[in-house]
Amino acid sequence: MSITLPTYSRLEIPLLGRRQRVWAIIATGLRKELRRPAAIVVMALGAAFTTITSIAILFIATIIPSGQAPNLTFFSGPASNFFVLFFVSLMASVIGAGLIADDLQSMAFTLYLSRPITQLDYLLAKAAILAPLVAMVTILPLLLAALVAAFLGFFSWTIALEAMGISIVVGGLLTLFYTAITLFLSSLSRRKGIAGAGVFAVNFGLTIPAEVLTIVIGNRSILYLSPWDNYVAVATAAFGASSTGIDWAVALAILLGVTVLAALVTYVRMKAVEVITG
């Protein structure tokens, strides 16, 4: 048997900075997700369904006589669209849950960290993969609803543009919250199923009991336990609609606090994580 081989030789290549390295993780992660039929279906269904229902909610609000001219408060309806909660949970479970867990389970994490990549780079890249996808159900539908409503003449462009700006802020808040929580849950286990179940538990395991208990006990403070109700309180206040019964400032503090805490704990955990693979 005769084998001829080229020889190895060393050479120096100037290397690019941190931004390019982070982008390399993002590009690989996005390519991975966009190859998965489940991820594509959830993204497409989520974006389409939440957009259609948000537009429908807005139109119904304008059609039903309420005695007031179309104004910014009308947009609190689509912002409180319950389908957003459902699809954000589904998207976080199907796409986000595996972002870190899958890498821990396979040797991908070992390979990532064998490169000049810090844990912060890695986490930022994972957040940058998930956040735009979550925004497809938290921000995009609100923007499109306002846009369509303005095009059809239901609202003035001034109101629509203002609504779009507020939508970006409140939708961004929800996006950050779910991105941080999902990555935190994904970093806890090598099994993405557990992280996915955790996202549903955080949403429906807190929201539904909190709303039921509020009705039974009659104390609306329990709603602070529900991330969704906190978000709705903030969104409603941002659009100038009447209060949902809980203080929007407290709700905002809770959402921001939990987001920052989840991000910090995930970072500390990833910083200390040891890759044990066998």
Partner: peptide
Amino acid sequence: NVPLKRRLGYCPEQNQLYGW
């Protein structure tokens, strides 16, 4: 030690890759 990683090449034992 991130800068040190530029100076090493690691070949893990595990066989799982991003198969696609």
